[in-house]
């Protein structure tokens, strides 16, 4: 179905997802510097294993997952970021990241945009928290299942 996505739509969605009160000026700058990317189908690729991390995705709407072979995948929902760990480490993507909802909307934040947002203290805290959530999710996968102890 035909849809129209404008600057304000992206800005309002972003504002609603952030856990702090970001000024409109700041949000405008982020929308200007990031790129709006949408995915129309389950299984579409956000990143493929081995891609260079020139940026990361901030999910505005829909779900994505990090596919880790031989174990459970890590689910990403609105307000979370895909590819952030590889981007910060400046290392190639270790796993595929795919969409797992029929419609996914995101903004792609490249290094120039990241360097701008990281200067804002609440954003820096938000990125740090997101990274910690990543670490937590990976650590969860390393914990042996309870059945092993039974």
């Amino acid at each position: 179905m035909f849809r129209i996505v404008g600057f304000n739509t992206i800005q309002e969605t972003l504002k609603a997802l952030l856990p702090f009160n970001a000024s409109n000026l700041l949000l405008e700058e982020i929308v200007m510097q990031s790129s709006f990317i949408q995915f129309h189908g389950v299984g579409e690729c956000l990143f493929k294993k081995g891609d260079s991390p020139l940026g990361f995705y901030f999910i505005l709407h829909g779900k994505a997952e990090i596919l880790i072979p031989g174990t459970e995948s890590i689910k990403l929902v609105s307000g979370q970021m895909g590819g952030l760990d590889a981007f910060l480490e400046e290392e190639k993507l270790l796993f595929d990241v795919i969409s797992c909802s029929p419609h996914l909307e995101s903004i792609f934040i490249d290094r120039r945009c990241y360097e701008f947002i990281i200067k804002q203290a609440p954003f820096k805290k938000f990125i740090d928290q997101s990274l910690l959530r990543y670490v937590g999710a990976y650590r969860q996968l390393l914990v042996p299942p309870q059945s092993m102890f039974l």
């Binding site: 996505v5 600057f7 949408q38 690729c45 020139l54 940026g55 995705y57 792609f108």
Partner: peptide
């Protein structure tokens, strides 16, 4: 989908996979 962009707004970034 119709997407509108303001002057100076990034449409797509190198490295993304639209």
């Amino acid at each position: 989908t119709c997407v509108s962009f303001r002057k100076g707004q990034v449409i797509i970034h190198e490295g993304a996979r639209p």
